[in-house]
């Protein structure tokens, strides 16, 4: 969910950006990160751990912890918490280390 009204802040949401997550179309706004845009849609599980197949979401949101890695436009291990959405971007959940065979 996005915040509509805030007592202190105002959010610029000018240009709409469309991308896909596991094939599903997602609407976002220019300037948002992939992780933030997915979160706004209620999507918290971004990938799956290699050995135990545990769900993974982001923890730090500033590019430190590498808990938010996804495959973006064919490139695995993209830190989606600091990567901004672009029109037509293809975002896919990632299995484990992101080896080509591991992609969902």
């Amino acid at each position: 969910m996005r915040i509509r009204r805030h007592p202190i802040l105002s959010f610029k949401r000018e240009k709409e950006v469309n991308f896909t997550f596991n094939g599903k179309p997602i609407k976002a706004f220019e300037g948002e990160t992939i992780a933030a845009a997915l979160h706004a849609e209620g999507i918290k599980v971004l990938s799956e751990s290699k050995r135990n197949h545990r769900p993974r979401g982001f923890f730090c949101a500033i590019g430190n912890c590498a808990s938010c890695l996804m495959k973006v436009d064919g490139i695995p291990n993209v830190k989606t918490c600091i990567t901004r959405v672009r029109d037509g971007m293809v975002v896919i959940s990632q299995h484990g280390r992101g080896d080509p065979g591991d992609i969902l």
């Binding site: 969910m1 996005r2 915040i3 805030h6 802040l9 959010f11 949401r13 300037g31 948002e32 990160t33 933030a36 979160h39 706004a40 982001f58 923890f59 730090c60 949101a61 500033i62 918490c81």
Partner: peptide, 12 residues
Amino acid sequence: GAVQTLMNVYGV
């Protein structure tokens, strides 16, 4: 910090 980033930077 992640919570702050999400809600205060991106308004989510």
